[in-house]
């Protein structure tokens, strides 16, 4: 699971109001090289919740993103785009869990696939 996907997931348990972002419990993180595509990054920048991405990448052992939402002018910087690219697409949570920030419920991640299935009493 890439951090872009983490950025699009929220806790789906019935009654949960603040289900985003899910906290990451990382047991195994892998890095996979992905083709660098500035257009894609510029397109995704406005759709990403920056703080969730910066915090998630830190949990995954990558501490290069600014904590505060950067000014869109940084999108002209190759150096920034490279870091954004790496955090968003190249860090994979292979084994671990995503934890609902409100209820503490763990959603397991195995073989890079988060399991968001709910129990009957959570739907």
């Amino acid at each position: 699971m890439r951090l872009l996907t983490h950025n699009m997931l929220s806790s789906n348990i019935k009654g949960v109001i603040n289900g985003f972002p899910l906290l990451i419990q990382a047991e195994r993180v892998v890095e996979k090289q992905v083709d660098f595509n500035p257009d894609f990054l510029k397109n995704m920048f406005s759709k990403i919740d920056w703080k969730a991405l910066a915090d998630a990448s830190k949990t995954m052992g990558y501490d290069e993103l600014p904590d505060e939402v950067p000014d869109p002018s940084v999108l002209d910087s190759q150096e920034f785009l490279q870091k954004f690219h790496h955090a968003l697409l190249e860090l994979h949570l292979e084994e671990g869990a995503l934890v609902c920030p409100e209820t503490g419920r763990r959603f397991p991640v195995n073989k890079g696939i988060p399991n968001m299935l709910l129990h009957e009493d959570e739907v």
Binding site: M1, T5, N7, M8, L9, S10, S11, N12, G19, F20, D49, F107, G112, I113, P114, N115, M116, L117, L118
Partner: peptide
Amino acid sequence: LVTTNIASGLEKR
């Protein structure tokens, strides 16, 4: 990939 019912967990974001 996400194991989920339809798009549950992805629908908000």
